[in-house]
């Protein structure tokens, strides 16, 4: 029995881009970082959040009765309006909405329940070299849960992958590193100021952790979210190219920016980002690859999504 709890916002089976093989990815809610391009803004908060999709609302007012906090109101024009500041984010209204305009991000669950789901795809992991990926948010922010889940996967002989920003204290990584088979570590921006501006935190601890984790002999996939005109400087590709040569046995993935996060921001009451309104074109992706190579980057370990 393991009832260590966590707030999870999604469990995705048949994940193909979260590590080797076919995987199940568990997304934990809550992240200390605020990357401007984040396509999962619903992962930021450490508490549940109500999402309201105005486009789906048919103004039936079912939610008005269901809400104990009067956060759903009827306007003079009989239109429904949602006052987020009154909402306690517990979701009593979600079930009431017949049009799926309301949705609660985040639910409490525990290690056992998650493993029950994860184990169902064992046959696919075994055949493909896949397994469990713990992602977020930032899994290191709920260290006790992440540790327990990693232990449980080990016990079940399911391979693990941890998706982290690299920003947690080294001591924490040190405690769990023997339980992780593959690391996804993000490398987001080059230049101390730019990093601070885009991510909201210092870059150096991340670099240090990357080297330490690598030194421990771990298998690392370095993931680089790229936004055209924001973090795709020559300096950045130069740095990544250098890492590709200095840290042996690592692979690198370029993750082009997706606009899909924007609509979600609006639904959970966040301000729009300053990111471009378009996805990266194939031409831009090719340019990234070429620049990386021009700085001596090892092309054989690079995947551009």
């Amino acid at each position: 029995m393991d009832n260590t709890k966590a707030l999870v916002f999604d469990i995705q089976r048949f994940s193909l881009q979260d590590g080797p093989g076919i995987r199940t990815t568990v997304f934990l809610k809550g992240c200390p970082l605020r990357c401007a391009w984040c396509h999962n803004p619903e992962s930021w908060s450490f508490t549940t959040e109500l999402s309201f999709d105005e486009q789906k609302c048919e103004h039936c007012h079912a939610c008005v009765d269901a809400c104990p906090s009067n956060a759903h109101i009827i306007n003079v024009d009989k239109h429904h309006a949602f006052i987020r500041t009154l909402c306690d984010n517990t979701g009593a209204c979600v079930e009431a909405c017949p049009n799926s305009a309301l949705k609660l991000y985040g639910y409490d669950t525990d290690v056992d329940s998650i493993m029950e789901e994860v184990i169902k795809d064992r046959a696919y992991y075994d055949e493909s070299g896949g397994g469990l990926t713990i992602s977020g948010g930032e899994p290191m922010s709920n260290l006790s849960f992440t540790t327990q889940l990693l232990h449980a996967a080990r016990a079940a002989q399911i391979a693990t992958c941890l998706d982290t920003s690299g920003f947690a204290p080294w001591k924490q990584y040190d405690r769990i590193k023997h339980l992780v088979d593959v690391w996804h570590i993000d490398y987001k921006a080059t230049g101390a100021e730019l990093h601070k501006e885009l991510i909201g935190v210092d870059r150096q601890p991340i670099i240090d952790n990357l080297h330490r984790i690598h030194a421990s002999g771990a298998r690392i996939i370095l993931r680089c979210p790229l936004v055209h005109g924001v973090n795709d400087s020559d300096e950045h590709f130069h740095y990544i190219a250098d890492i590709s040569n200095n840290l042996a046995d690592m692979t690198i993935e370029f993750l082009p920016y997706h606009v899909m996060g924007e609509a979600k921001r609006d639904r959970i009451g966040q301000k729009a980002s300053h990111m471009p309104k378009k996805d990266a074109t194939e031409a831009i992706k090719t340019d990234w690859r070429e620049r990386y190579c021009s700085f001596g980057g090892n092309e054989s370990i690079l995947t551009v999504y």
């Binding site: 048949f14 193909l16 093989g21 076919i22 046959a123 696919y124 055949e127 493909s128």
Partner: peptide, 20 residues
């Protein structure tokens, strides 16, 4: 895109389905 980019994983998916 699954066919073009994730073909090996797709093959494993089908193999596993057929085997089981």
């Amino acid at each position: 895109s699954i066919f073009s980019r994730q073909r090996p994983k797709l093959e494993v998916l089908l193999d596993t389905y057929f085997k089981n």
